[in-house]
Amino acid sequence: MSTSESMAPGDGKDWLKTAARAGYAARGLVFLIVGYFSFRAAFASGEAMDTKDAIEVIAGSGFGAVLLAAMVLALAAFAIWRLIQVVMDVDDHGNGAKGLFVRFGLLISAFSYGGLAVYATTLLIGSASGGEEGGSSGKSGAIAYAYEQGYGVWLTYLIAAGMAAAAIAHLVKAAKAGFEKYMALPEDRRWLLKPICQFGLSARALTFIVLAVLLASGAAGYQSGDTPGLDAALQEISGWSFGWAFLSLTGLGLIAFGVYSITEAVYRRIEMPDVSNVG
């Protein structure tokens, strides 16, 4: 496509691409914070955190309101981009078993980051209860309802299976460097960015594996959908033999995953559907 075509009046793709890149950057910032606190917790008395805790850290910063507003917009944009990936199949995953599997994972991601955007919104408008209680209530709302209706255990097993599948997908992507298919990494930086991205994906896979085990093993005993999140997975890792070493390595890996997300924000090939005729 020529430059003149890409800048044609009425083309709705540019703002969508910008929004998608902002979403990747927002995800990167969240995991940089989570990874940093996980690494610090391995050597100090601090505790590991999940993505909602990271949002609370941003809220408590010097420019909290401004940053929160930006995070709300960026995370919402990322959730919308995920939905576009699912519905429009802009990455050509196809309708085969593998393609549908990948697109289902993207759908789960859309709901996850959409929920995180909603949580950031509650903090922004001052309606969150604050502290850990606020994070927990936001995390377990949908699952709590499922437990109240009597099918929470099976939903938890389904989520655990989804976590295990996501772990496998991340490990395969890391091993085969499958992300390069969708990114235009500059050759002079590829030698550094490629292994960082692989390390980050592997660390994210580890947290998914631990979460899947925690969810499956405790599904029958949860009350009101009080299921574990990323912070619980990291705390579980810290309890292993030489847990401090595994936790510090995982923390560094989640920082690398944050770098991976920011790398996507900069270098990902984002193919948008033609939205000029929508309406």
Rank of each mutant, 00 (worst) to 15 (best):
V34C: 04
A76Q: 12
S136H: 05
S4P: 03
V66R: 12
F78I: 00
G138T: 05
A54V: 07
A22E: 02
G141H: 03
L124M: 09
G134E: 00
G46I: 06
G126M: 08
A20V: 09
E132R: 11
G135P: 06
T51S: 14
F101H: 07
A8M: 07
T3A: 11
S4A: 15
A41R: 06
E133R: 11
D53E: 05
V90H: 07
I58A: 03
S112A: 15
T18N: 15
F104N: 09
A22M: 08
A142E: 12
A54Q: 01
A110V: 02
Y113N: 06
S140V: 01
R40F: 11
G131S: 08
R21T: 00
S6R: 13
D50N: 13
S38N: 03
G134Q: 05
M88Y: 03
I80D: 01
K13W: 02
K98C: 04
A54N: 00
M71K: 03
G64T: 04
L116H: 04
I80E: 06
S61A: 14
I58T: 02
Y36P: 02
M88N: 10
R40D: 14
V34M: 10
F63T: 04
D53T: 08
A19W: 01
T122R: 12
M7V: 13
A70T: 04
S38Y: 00
K98I: 13
I33P: 06
R82W: 02
L16F: 13
G115D: 03
G23T: 02
M88H: 03
F37E: 13
Y145S: 12
A48G: 01
G130T: 08
L29D: 08
A128M: 10
G115M: 09
K17H: 10
V87N: 12
G23K: 03
M88L: 09
V57S: 02
R27K: 09
D91T: 10
D50V: 00
A142P: 02
A42K: 01
D91C: 05
G60W: 02
G46D: 09
G35K: 11
A59N: 08
I55G: 02
G99K: 07
Q85W: 08
G130E: 07
G62V: 10
V90Y: 01
A144F: 05
L100N: 15
R21D: 00
Y145L: 14
A142V: 05
I125C: 09
Y119R: 02
S4I: 13
A110H: 01
L67T: 06
W81R: 00
V30Q: 00
L107N: 04
S136L: 14
T51P: 10
A77F: 03
V87H: 14
A54Y: 01
F101S: 12
L29R: 12
V102N: 11
G134N: 05
A26P: 08
A76T: 11
W81Q: 08
A120W: 03
G141N: 13
G115V: 03
L106T: 02
G99M: 13
I108L: 14
I55N: 00
S2V: 00
H93T: 04
G62W: 11
A77K: 03
L100Q: 11
I58K: 04
V118E: 01
G135M: 11
